[in-house]
Design a protein around this nucleic acid. Structure first.
Lengths: 347, 347
DNA sequence: TTGTATGCGTTATCAC
DNA sequence: GTGATAACGCATACAA
């Protein structure tokens, strides 16, 4: 059973009376061998139980086919879905992924990047927010970021601005008297800031009364529920009797707000229109399906990998042309209408 | 700026007038150098901008510190949380993870395994169900599976049987007249089968009327909702007027059932007691927090990695002692009581 | 404490 | 179409 520990090209070469070079060619330029000889080698590989060793190959030709990923966490469905899509791109491009969870710690993430560089990754995909893009750019390897500050590096982002406009527009179309946006404080350099700007621009353009609540809502259900309860209290008091269109920055929080309203009224009151963002499972699984802005995570991820592959291919040329400006790709979000805005869809 | 392409031990050696060996020792046995010399080398590394090359090190010492993971998908929160925990174990053990999404395709997964073997992974963690454990065992590398058929390989599983008992017991404690379990058809060799068995054993032991619905509920919200609607119809008719304790095999499905009940009655009727399984976010975020059996995913994952690390360490000894029998670790689930069974917790 | 020589398993460069 | 030989960058047995 257990043959020699490691069957190598040498063993195959001896067995077949070819040279190591020819064995190598069998794998890399098979058509440069005669069919008979291919068969002979193929049989020998089978017979001796050869297993590839890509580590040796890397050392010899420098191509690891490794891509590093640093992602903040996998709690949020958004992140795990992005990771899912990226990993699945192996089928198309063949790159293997070394994945690290950032956990929001800048120094830790630097350590991860060092480790990744030590394994000679050919490219890097960054979703975490801690390390400034300027520093990333100085790593001098192909990098693509997704939905984060991206001034100095290539990136793929959702058109958050359009998403914000779509949300506000839909609520406006339902003749809401006041439009409300609930979000956490967001830096302007982060793509997600566009949600706020898009919302505001529509409100202003159409002269619709509006209010934006920017507040840290915490990370646990109970905490968020508490904070949203307070905000809801303010809204109820301030806009009593008015038709309220509320755009919440993500579906998880929109769902909590919806639960709060159900808790009070046993239903979504007719003067409330509600929208989330992300099209995450909860928006569909909520007590009332929640209208939302869907990020096209499949496209987002696929474009990110494709862009990175382009950059990596350029890098492999003898004289890589350095990018003058980082490339920024934009993915259009899709408006998804469900029961929280289309009241006739309500059961 | 851009120095020499790749600074190697040779460069450092020349620069410091040491030999490559000494440079190597600086990294692997630093205490065998004088402090001064350590400093000299340290300075030189800094000066020349040295970057480790772990690929070369692998080829020289055979230790990749790679672990392969094959996981069915990341749609289910359970899987993404397991992956999250496994990846985070890097901090403790230092192993790097090469992750593949199985997507339920047996031949594809074989291909992934071949690829992983080519990269000389030291161990393998399997969550996907397609490849029989007998075949996995023949790979002759350390393997740990999580919550899947594990006859011939080491594994870590939740005590599903106890979970099923806990669920049934809690429903029994609330004096339900009939206990109902809704699940998908599950092979007996899969650990999750224990949920059914545990439920049944409690029912029989206590002579409680019960019924088990085993039915494929589909993979999409609408489809599942449809199927559950039918089952609910049967239950309503058959057990009208009785106090019903329903144990659903996962929280996602339990939530859908809860939504259906709310759709009909605007609340969870007093003659319904409901339990899920997994303690996934939806169980907390549902319109009414759902009682559930929590898998201790952190422990489950940590034990899996720890077990694998043990196996890998054994493998590194000059004469590894082969396991006589696969090791199977069991993690106890925790009962989580929420509003769907503790009616006084209802708002 | 430090150095020499050799090996790890492949690919690349040249030659034939 | 095939082969000999030198990389690739580091680790380790052995020697000093």
């Amino acid at each position: 059973m257990a043959k020699k520990q490691n069957v190598t090209f040498s063993d195959i070469a001896k067995y077949t009376n070819f040279s190591k070079t020819t064995i190598s060619r069998y794998f890399n330029h098979p058509d440069s061998l005669t069919l008979e000889n291919q068969q002979i080698i193929s049989d020998a590989l089978e017979k001796l139980g050869y297993q590839e060793n890509k580590v040796a190959r890397i050392l010899a030709n420098g191509k690891t086919e490794f891509v590093g990923i640093i992602i903040p966490n996998l709690y949020f469905h958004y992140y795990s879905e992005v990771l899912n899509q990226i990993l699945n791109s192996y089928e198309e491009f063949g790159y293997k992924f070394l994945v690290f969870i950032g956990n929001e710690n800048e120094e830790t993430e630097r350590q991860y990047i060092r480790e990744l560089m030590a394994y000679k990754i050919e490219g890097l995909i960054i979703l975490s927010h801690t390390i400034p893009s300027l520093e990333l750019a100085q790593l001098n390897i192909p990098i693509v970021t997704i939905e984060r500050e991206d001034r100095y590096v290539c990136s793929v982002n959702t058109d958050n601005y359009m998403g914000g406009m779509q949300a506000a527009s839909l609520l406006a179309k339902h003749h809401c008297d006041v439009l409300i946006h609930i979000n956490t404080p967001t830096a302007q350099v982060v793509p997600a800031y566009g949600r706020i700007q898009g919302f505001l621009d529509i409100c202003r353009e159409r002269n619709i009364p509006h209010e934006v609540f920017l507040q840290d809502l915490g990370n646990h259900y109970e905490e968020t529920r508490q904070k949203l309860q307070e905000i809801l209290g303010i809204i109820e008091e301030k806009y009593s009797g008015k038709r309220k269109g509320i755009f919440v920055s993500n579906d998880t929080h929109a769902n909590i707000l919806l639960n709060l309203l159900f808790g009070r009224y046993g239903k979504l009151p007719s003067d409330y229109y509600l929208m989330g963002f992300d099209n995450s499972p909860i928006s569909r699984e909520a007590i009332l399906p929640i209208s939302t802005i869907g990020q096209q995570i499949d496209k987002l991820s696929h474009e990110a990998v494709k862009l990175l592959v382009d950059l990596m291919n350029e890098q492999k040329k003898r004289k890589p042309a350095p990018l003058k400006e980082p490339v920024h790709k934009i993915i259009t979000p899709v408006l998804i209408r469900r029961a929280t805005t289309e009241k006739d869809l309500t059961d």
